[in-house]
Simulated scan of single mutants.
Amino acid sequence: MPQQDNLSGSNSTDSDPSVFFLSGIPGLEAMHLWISIPFCSVFTVALLGNCTLLYVIKTEPSLHKPMFYFLTMLAVIDLVLSTSTMPKSLSIFWLNSREISFTACLVQMFFLHSFAIMESAVLLAMAFDRYVAICNPLRYATILTNSVIAKIGLAALTRAVLLMVPLPFLLRRLPFCRSHVIAHCYCEHMAVVNLACANTRFNNIYGIFITLFIVGVDLMFIALSYVKILRTVLSLASKEEQLKAFGTCISHLCAILMFYTPVVLSSIVHRFGHRVAPHIHILLANFYLLFPPMMNPIVYGVKTKQIRDRLLLLFHRKSF
Protein backbone atom coordinates (compact mmCIF):
# COMPACT_ATOMS: atom_id res chain seq x y z
CA MET A 1 0.00 0.00 0.00
CA PRO A 2 1.28 3.53 -0.72
CA GLN A 3 0.75 4.69 2.84
CA GLN A 4 2.90 1.84 4.18
CA ASP A 5 5.65 2.88 1.78
CA ASN A 6 5.36 6.43 3.09
CA LEU A 7 5.55 5.25 6.67
CA SER A 8 8.61 3.16 6.00
CA GLY A 9 10.12 6.02 4.09
CA SER A 10 9.49 8.37 6.97
CA ASN A 11 12.63 7.06 8.65
CA SER A 12 14.76 8.68 5.99
CA THR A 13 17.60 11.07 6.67
CA ASP A 14 15.65 14.11 5.47
CA SER A 15 16.47 16.85 8.02
CA ASP A 16 13.80 19.22 6.69
CA PRO A 17 10.63 17.13 6.69
CA SER A 18 7.63 18.20 4.70
CA VAL A 19 5.51 15.37 6.10
CA PHE A 20 4.99 13.74 9.49
CA PHE A 21 2.96 10.66 10.36
CA LEU A 22 0.73 10.38 13.42
CA SER A 23 0.75 6.91 14.94
CA GLY A 24 -2.53 7.22 16.84
CA ILE A 25 -2.27 5.38 20.15
CA PRO A 26 0.98 3.34 20.19
CA GLY A 27 0.47 -0.25 21.26
CA LEU A 28 -3.30 -0.11 20.78
CA GLU A 29 -3.44 0.15 16.98
CA ALA A 30 -5.55 -3.01 16.72
CA MET A 31 -8.16 -1.41 18.99
CA HIS A 32 -8.37 1.93 17.18
CA LEU A 33 -11.86 1.23 15.85
CA TRP A 34 -13.19 0.41 19.32
CA ILE A 35 -11.36 3.36 20.90
CA SER A 36 -12.96 5.67 18.34
CA ILE A 37 -16.44 4.95 19.77
CA PRO A 38 -15.96 6.74 23.14
CA PHE A 39 -13.79 9.40 21.46
CA CYS A 40 -16.48 10.16 18.87
CA SER A 41 -19.25 10.07 21.50
CA VAL A 42 -17.45 12.53 23.77
CA PHE A 43 -16.60 14.77 20.79
CA THR A 44 -20.25 14.79 19.67
CA VAL A 45 -21.48 15.66 23.18
CA ALA A 46 -18.88 18.45 23.40
CA LEU A 47 -20.00 19.94 20.08
CA LEU A 48 -23.72 19.71 20.87
CA GLY A 49 -23.30 20.94 24.45
CA ASN A 50 -21.19 23.98 23.64
CA CYS A 51 -23.24 24.95 20.57
CA THR A 52 -26.43 24.68 22.63
CA LEU A 53 -24.87 26.77 25.38
CA LEU A 54 -23.88 29.47 22.88
CA TYR A 55 -27.35 29.46 21.34
CA VAL A 56 -29.07 29.75 24.73
CA ILE A 57 -26.85 32.65 25.86
CA LYS A 58 -27.26 34.46 22.53
CA THR A 59 -31.05 34.15 22.38
CA GLU A 60 -31.84 34.87 26.03
CA PRO A 61 -31.45 38.61 26.86
CA SER A 62 -31.42 37.92 30.62
CA LEU A 63 -28.15 36.00 30.13
CA HIS A 64 -26.36 38.98 28.59
CA LYS A 65 -24.28 39.51 31.73
CA PRO A 66 -20.53 39.35 32.52
CA MET A 67 -20.63 35.82 33.92
CA PHE A 68 -22.28 34.48 30.76
CA TYR A 69 -19.99 36.46 28.46
CA PHE A 70 -17.06 34.64 30.07
CA LEU A 71 -18.97 31.37 29.70
CA THR A 72 -19.41 32.18 25.99
CA MET A 73 -15.63 32.61 25.67
CA LEU A 74 -15.12 29.27 27.43
CA ALA A 75 -17.55 27.51 25.07
CA VAL A 76 -15.86 28.95 21.96
CA ILE A 77 -12.43 27.91 23.27
CA ASP A 78 -13.68 24.40 24.03
CA LEU A 79 -15.10 24.11 20.51
CA VAL A 80 -11.75 25.13 18.98
CA LEU A 81 -9.81 22.74 21.24
CA SER A 82 -12.08 19.85 20.25
CA THR A 83 -12.22 20.56 16.51
CA SER A 84 -8.49 21.25 16.18
CA THR A 85 -7.59 17.69 17.19
CA MET A 86 -10.50 15.23 17.06
CA PRO A 87 -11.29 15.21 13.30
CA LYS A 88 -7.70 14.19 12.55
CA SER A 89 -7.66 11.66 15.40
CA LEU A 90 -10.88 10.06 14.15
CA SER A 91 -9.52 9.93 10.60
CA ILE A 92 -6.58 7.94 12.00
CA PHE A 93 -8.89 5.55 13.87
CA TRP A 94 -11.36 5.08 11.00
CA LEU A 95 -9.37 5.59 7.78
CA ASN A 96 -5.77 5.03 8.89
CA SER A 97 -5.10 8.54 7.55
CA ARG A 98 -1.87 9.23 9.43
CA GLU A 99 -0.13 11.72 7.16
CA ILE A 100 0.08 15.38 8.15
CA SER A 101 2.25 18.07 6.59
CA PHE A 102 4.86 19.74 8.77
CA THR A 103 3.11 23.11 8.30
CA ALA A 104 -0.31 21.68 9.20
CA CYS A 105 1.30 20.04 12.22
CA LEU A 106 2.70 23.37 13.43
CA VAL A 107 -0.65 25.11 12.83
CA GLN A 108 -2.50 22.43 14.79
CA MET A 109 0.04 22.72 17.61
CA PHE A 110 -0.28 26.51 17.68
CA PHE A 111 -4.09 26.42 17.92
CA LEU A 112 -4.08 23.59 20.44
CA HIS A 113 -1.66 25.17 22.92
CA SER A 114 -2.83 28.76 22.34
CA PHE A 115 -6.45 27.96 23.13
CA ALA A 116 -5.47 25.84 26.14
CA ILE A 117 -3.65 28.91 27.50
CA MET A 118 -6.71 31.05 26.70
CA GLU A 119 -8.96 28.65 28.60
CA SER A 120 -6.74 29.05 31.66
CA ALA A 121 -7.01 32.84 31.34
CA VAL A 122 -10.81 32.71 31.01
CA LEU A 123 -11.08 30.51 34.11
CA LEU A 124 -9.02 33.14 35.94
CA ALA A 125 -11.34 35.88 34.63
CA MET A 126 -14.34 33.89 35.84
CA ALA A 127 -12.74 33.65 39.30
CA PHE A 128 -12.41 37.46 39.27
CA ASP A 129 -16.07 37.70 38.22
CA ARG A 130 -17.12 35.58 41.22
CA TYR A 131 -14.86 37.62 43.52
CA VAL A 132 -16.45 40.91 42.43
CA ALA A 133 -20.00 39.47 42.55
CA ILE A 134 -19.58 38.20 46.13
CA CYS A 135 -17.09 40.62 47.69
CA ASN A 136 -18.15 43.85 45.92
CA PRO A 137 -21.73 43.22 44.74
CA LEU A 138 -22.71 46.91 44.72
CA ARG A 139 -19.85 47.75 42.34
CA TYR A 140 -20.28 44.69 40.12
CA ALA A 141 -21.97 46.52 37.23
CA THR A 142 -19.46 49.39 37.30
CA ILE A 143 -16.36 47.16 37.52
CA LEU A 144 -17.28 44.48 34.97
CA THR A 145 -18.54 46.63 32.11
CA ASN A 146 -18.72 45.34 28.53
CA SER A 147 -15.58 47.32 27.75
CA VAL A 148 -13.64 45.68 30.60
CA ILE A 149 -14.84 42.20 29.57
CA ALA A 150 -13.72 42.83 25.97
CA LYS A 151 -10.30 43.97 27.22
CA ILE A 152 -9.97 40.85 29.38
CA GLY A 153 -10.79 38.66 26.37
CA LEU A 154 -8.28 40.55 24.22
CA ALA A 155 -5.61 40.26 26.92
CA ALA A 156 -6.21 36.47 27.14
CA LEU A 157 -5.84 36.15 23.36
CA THR A 158 -2.73 38.36 23.24
CA ARG A 159 -0.97 36.46 26.04
CA ALA A 160 -1.68 33.11 24.38
CA VAL A 161 -0.44 34.25 20.96
CA LEU A 162 2.72 35.89 22.33
CA LEU A 163 3.65 32.79 24.31
CA MET A 164 2.96 30.39 21.42
CA VAL A 165 4.40 32.32 18.46
CA PRO A 166 8.00 31.23 19.26
CA LEU A 167 7.11 27.51 19.19
CA PRO A 168 6.80 27.03 15.40
CA PHE A 169 10.05 28.96 14.83
CA LEU A 170 11.88 26.96 17.51
CA LEU A 171 10.72 23.72 15.89
CA ARG A 172 11.52 24.82 12.33
CA ARG A 173 15.18 25.34 13.24
CA LEU A 174 15.50 21.72 14.44
CA PRO A 175 16.71 18.95 12.11
CA PHE A 176 14.51 15.84 11.96
CA CYS A 177 16.86 13.24 10.53
CA ARG A 178 15.41 10.22 12.31
CA SER A 179 11.84 8.95 12.32
CA HIS A 180 9.08 11.31 11.22
CA VAL A 181 6.43 9.23 13.00
CA ILE A 182 4.86 11.17 15.88
CA ALA A 183 3.79 8.81 18.66
CA HIS A 184 0.54 10.66 19.24
CA CYS A 185 -2.98 11.33 17.87
CA TYR A 186 -2.16 14.98 17.20
CA CYS A 187 0.84 17.32 17.01
CA GLU A 188 1.65 17.87 20.66
CA HIS A 189 4.76 20.01 21.26
CA MET A 190 6.88 17.55 23.25
CA ALA A 191 5.94 14.62 21.00
CA VAL A 192 7.37 16.52 18.00
CA VAL A 193 10.42 17.79 19.90
CA ASN A 194 11.33 14.22 20.84
CA LEU A 195 11.84 13.39 17.14
CA ALA A 196 14.56 16.00 16.62
CA CYS A 197 18.16 14.81 16.22
CA ALA A 198 19.68 17.91 17.85
CA ASN A 199 19.97 19.51 21.26
CA THR A 200 16.40 20.28 22.32
CA ARG A 201 17.18 21.60 25.79
CA PHE A 202 15.91 25.10 24.99
CA ASN A 203 12.64 23.71 23.58
CA ASN A 204 12.18 21.57 26.69
CA ILE A 205 12.92 24.48 29.02
CA TYR A 206 10.57 26.78 27.12
CA GLY A 207 7.78 24.19 27.24
CA ILE A 208 8.24 23.67 30.99
CA PHE A 209 8.40 27.44 31.55
CA ILE A 210 5.08 28.01 29.76
CA THR A 211 3.39 25.20 31.70
CA LEU A 212 4.68 26.42 35.07
CA PHE A 213 4.00 30.07 34.23
CA ILE A 214 0.43 29.54 33.05
CA VAL A 215 -0.63 26.94 35.60
CA GLY A 216 1.34 28.53 38.46
CA VAL A 217 0.37 32.17 37.94
CA ASP A 218 -3.27 31.56 36.97
CA LEU A 219 -3.87 29.05 39.77
CA MET A 220 -2.23 31.37 42.28
CA PHE A 221 -4.59 34.24 41.41
CA ILE A 222 -7.58 31.88 41.28
CA ALA A 223 -6.69 30.60 44.76
CA LEU A 224 -6.26 34.18 46.01
CA SER A 225 -9.72 35.08 44.67
CA TYR A 226 -11.29 32.12 46.44
CA VAL A 227 -9.52 32.88 49.72
CA LYS A 228 -11.15 36.33 49.63
CA ILE A 229 -14.48 34.82 48.55
CA LEU A 230 -14.36 32.31 51.41
CA ARG A 231 -13.66 35.05 53.94
CA THR A 232 -16.61 37.08 52.68
CA VAL A 233 -18.94 34.06 52.58
CA LEU A 234 -18.03 33.01 56.13
CA SER A 235 -18.73 36.55 57.37
CA LEU A 236 -22.35 36.34 56.21
CA ALA A 237 -24.88 36.12 59.01
CA SER A 238 -26.98 33.07 58.15
CA LYS A 239 -26.06 29.60 56.90
CA GLU A 240 -28.59 29.98 54.09
CA GLU A 241 -26.85 33.13 52.80
CA GLN A 242 -23.48 31.38 52.97
CA LEU A 243 -24.71 28.39 50.96
CA LYS A 244 -26.43 30.62 48.40
CA ALA A 245 -23.29 32.76 47.90
CA PHE A 246 -20.94 29.81 47.65
CA GLY A 247 -23.40 27.92 45.43
CA THR A 248 -22.77 30.45 42.66
CA CYS A 249 -19.12 29.28 42.60
CA ILE A 250 -19.72 25.50 42.35
CA SER A 251 -19.83 25.39 38.54
CA HIS A 252 -16.65 27.41 38.24
CA LEU A 253 -14.83 25.26 40.80
CA CYS A 254 -15.84 22.15 38.83
CA ALA A 255 -14.54 23.74 35.61
CA ILE A 256 -11.22 24.54 37.32
CA LEU A 257 -10.77 20.96 38.57
CA MET A 258 -11.75 19.47 35.18
CA PHE A 259 -9.24 21.65 33.33
CA TYR A 260 -6.19 21.87 35.59
CA THR A 261 -6.12 18.33 37.04
CA PRO A 262 -5.62 16.53 33.67
CA VAL A 263 -3.23 19.26 32.45
CA VAL A 264 -0.97 18.88 35.50
CA LEU A 265 -1.14 15.07 35.45
CA SER A 266 -0.43 14.90 31.71
CA SER A 267 2.52 17.28 32.03
CA ILE A 268 4.02 15.34 34.95
CA VAL A 269 3.55 11.97 33.29
CA HIS A 270 4.93 13.22 29.94
CA ARG A 271 8.12 14.64 31.44
CA PHE A 272 8.83 12.39 34.41
CA GLY A 273 6.81 9.19 33.92
CA HIS A 274 9.42 7.35 31.85
CA ARG A 275 8.14 3.95 32.99
CA VAL A 276 4.53 4.72 32.10
CA ALA A 277 3.30 2.91 28.97
CA PRO A 278 3.12 5.18 25.88
CA HIS A 279 -0.61 4.60 25.38
CA ILE A 280 -1.26 5.94 28.92
CA HIS A 281 0.50 9.19 27.91
CA ILE A 282 -1.64 9.52 24.81
CA LEU A 283 -4.96 8.61 26.46
CA LEU A 284 -4.31 11.08 29.29
CA ALA A 285 -3.40 13.84 26.81
CA ASN A 286 -6.61 13.22 24.88
CA PHE A 287 -8.59 13.12 28.11
CA TYR A 288 -7.59 16.67 29.06
CA LEU A 289 -8.56 17.94 25.59
CA LEU A 290 -11.92 16.16 25.43
CA PHE A 291 -13.24 15.90 28.99
CA PRO A 292 -13.48 19.64 29.90
CA PRO A 293 -15.19 20.61 26.58
CA MET A 294 -17.73 17.85 27.15
CA MET A 295 -18.34 18.52 30.85
CA ASN A 296 -18.32 22.33 31.00
CA PRO A 297 -21.68 22.85 29.24
CA ILE A 298 -23.21 19.97 31.23
CA VAL A 299 -22.01 21.35 34.58
CA TYR A 300 -23.07 24.92 33.79
CA GLY A 301 -26.35 23.72 32.31
CA VAL A 302 -27.21 21.74 35.44
CA LYS A 303 -25.83 24.11 38.08
CA THR A 304 -26.77 27.52 36.65
CA LYS A 305 -30.47 28.21 37.22
CA GLN A 306 -30.85 30.77 34.41
CA ILE A 307 -29.39 28.38 31.81
CA ARG A 308 -31.30 25.41 33.18
CA ASP A 309 -34.61 27.28 33.07
CA ARG A 310 -33.95 28.50 29.53
CA LEU A 311 -33.06 24.99 28.35
CA LEU A 312 -36.19 23.51 29.93
CA LEU A 313 -38.29 26.18 28.24
CA LEU A 314 -36.57 25.52 24.90
CA PHE A 315 -37.19 21.76 25.03
CA HIS A 316 -40.72 22.28 26.34
CA ARG A 317 -41.56 24.42 23.27
CA LYS A 318 -40.07 21.86 20.88
CA SER A 319 -42.11 19.06 22.43
CA PHE A 320 -45.34 20.74 21.25
Rank of each mutant, 00 (worst) to 15 (best):
F111R: 08
S91P: 04
I100W: 00
A75R: 01
A75K: 03
A75L: 04
R98P: 05
F93G: 00
L81R: 02
M109A: 10
S101M: 13
S84N: 09
T83V: 15
P87H: 05
L74V: 12
V76Q: 10
C105S: 08
T103N: 15
I92C: 02
L74K: 03
A75V: 05
L90F: 08
T103P: 07
T72H: 08
S101L: 09
I100C: 06
V76W: 12
S114P: 06
S97M: 14
S114V: 06
L112M: 13
E119L: 10
C105A: 14
A104H: 11
M118Y: 00
S89L: 12
E99V: 11
P87S: 10
S97W: 14
E119W: 08
F93S: 01
N96R: 12
L79Y: 03
S82N: 13
V107E: 02
S120T: 12
M118I: 12
L74H: 09
L95V: 12
N96T: 08
I77C: 07
I100K: 08
F115L: 04
T103F: 15
E99M: 13
Q108N: 08
L81I: 14
Q108K: 05
M73C: 14
L90S: 02
I117D: 03
S91Y: 07
V107S: 02
L112H: 07
V76K: 13
W94S: 12
E99H: 11
Q108S: 09
Q108C: 07
L112P: 01
F93L: 04
V80H: 08
S89Q: 10
A116D: 08
L74Q: 12
N96F: 00
M86V: 15
V80Q: 09
N96E: 12
L90N: 00
T83W: 05
S97I: 11
C105Y: 02
T72W: 05
L95P: 02
S114L: 04
A75C: 11
L81W: 03
A75N: 00
S89E: 09
E99P: 02
M109N: 02
S97H: 12
M109Y: 00
I100E: 01
V76C: 13
M73T: 08
F111A: 11
D78A: 08
K88H: 13
L106A: 03
T72N: 09
L74M: 14
S91C: 14
W94I: 14
L90P: 01
F115W: 01
A116K: 05
L90T: 06
V76H: 07
F93H: 03
S89R: 03
D78Q: 05
F115M: 11
M86E: 10
V107L: 13
T83Y: 04
Q108G: 05
M86K: 10
Q108E: 13
M109G: 03
E99K: 15
M109D: 00
M86S: 10
M118E: 05
V107W: 02
I92N: 01
S114T: 09
V107T: 09
S91L: 15
F111E: 06
M118V: 11
A75E: 01
P87R: 07
S84C: 15
M109C: 12
A116W: 08
K88V: 06
K88D: 00
V80N: 04
L106E: 05
L95F: 15
M109H: 09
C105T: 04
S84I: 04
C105P: 05
M86C: 13
